[in-house]
Write a protein that binds this DNA or RNA. Structure first.
Lengths: 189, 189
DNA sequence: TCTCCTTAGAGACGATGCGTCTCTTACGGT
DNA sequence: ACCGTAAGAGACGCATCGTCTCTAAGGAGA
């Protein structure tokens, strides 16, 4: 009956991160406690604190462990509109897998995290736009950064403040009403 | 030495809200405690809890008490660009008066608040754009909502995620690179 | 002017959960 | 076979939440 087997190293770490993720899904961020994670993993709190400085770090690790790292294969559908839609859809999916409460909790407790979060997308959009320019879809690939990041930033804003699942029409509206008009007419420099 | 005068009604309430505001400025949101507010106001916690359900409500009341309610005199400079810049500048000022830490704290603890926060601007922008159309500055006042709210939403996104004072160049870039190009070319419906 | 009723002011209280400390003992390395 | 690291378990001190209790101030009404 007694399980005297002690977990170690990577095996133990995976168990801890899975327990943390499950706890996060069940209780959300504000009711996410180290005690509960430890209990769920049948271990003590010290085992957690030996690896992560605090709640926030454990939650971030758990999310990364579950969802993998940031997207680095850039969509290439051969079509600007679909490329951007694909990016936005990925962001929405990712956001929905954790929910707004968790994101707000992290934003409040782990302030150092957010610059990283949103500067990552610029490069992706740049590549997408340059490909579109090379195909002749738009007049130039030299688009102001403000325009490049507009759709992803607007989506992020929407996800953070309207705490509902993002409608598909939101994504198309961002692309058709805002992004495409801008890149079609944007003058270089 | 003993102050036996008891404050009452509106007078007391003002003292409590001032104490809360001072505490918020000094300690920020995460270290803002009801105990400290009560002590600063030379009263007991019950006096606070009799008026506000919890921390978040007290903080919101204190902010409203200090900064007045939302902006309802719409800028009218006779010029679309300056009108929008004025709105954005007001948002930035308001945000800076409390700082990102407080806003994130509230967003995490008072989820019901945010729809109100960001839906308020739509009407303001609508009026500004319609005036500009009436002056003949832009082809039509019938601008998609997504475009109307783009500059304020992008600014809010920036304030929430880049925890630095907003640069003046950010505001002009939002207007010149994003908003004006969109309203100049936007086709109705 | 006296009485009564609300509530200010003050602090104790139980509950929760953080992050630290301590203790025993499993188990992998040498 | 030995030893040192760290797992598993839980006690601990601290902070702070929100509730409860008590005394007496001072306004309202007779």
């Amino acid at each position: 009956m007694e399980q005297t087997q002690r977990r170690r190293g990577a095996e133990l770490e995976a168990v801890l991160l899975d327990a943390a993720w499950d706890e996060l899904m069940e209780s959300g961020y504000t009711r996410f406690t180290m005690e509960a994670v430890a209990a769920r993993a049948h271990t003590g709190k010290q085992v957690l604190y030996r690896r992560w400085k605090n709640r926030a770090e454990l939650v971030i690790s758990a999310m990364r462990h579950r969802n993998g790292s940031i997207i680095e294969d850039i969509p290439d559908t051969g079509n600007l509109r679909d490329d951007v839609l694909a990016i936005l859809q990925r962001m929405a999916d990712r956001f929905e897998s954790v929910g707004p409460e968790v994101v707000h909790g992290l934003l409040a407790e782990a302030p150092d995290l957010d610059p990283e979060v949103y500067s990552r997308m610029t490069g992706v959009m740049e590549t997408i736009v340059q490909r579109a320019a090379a195909r002749g879809e738009i007049p130039t690939g030299d688009v102001p950064e403000r325009v490049l990041t507009a759709p992803t930033n607007l989506l992020r804003h929407e996800m953070l403040l309207a705490r509902e699942p993002v409608a598909a029409s939101t994504l198309t509206s961002l692309v058709d009403d805002v992004f495409l008009p801008l890149v079609r007419t944007s003058a270089p420099h």
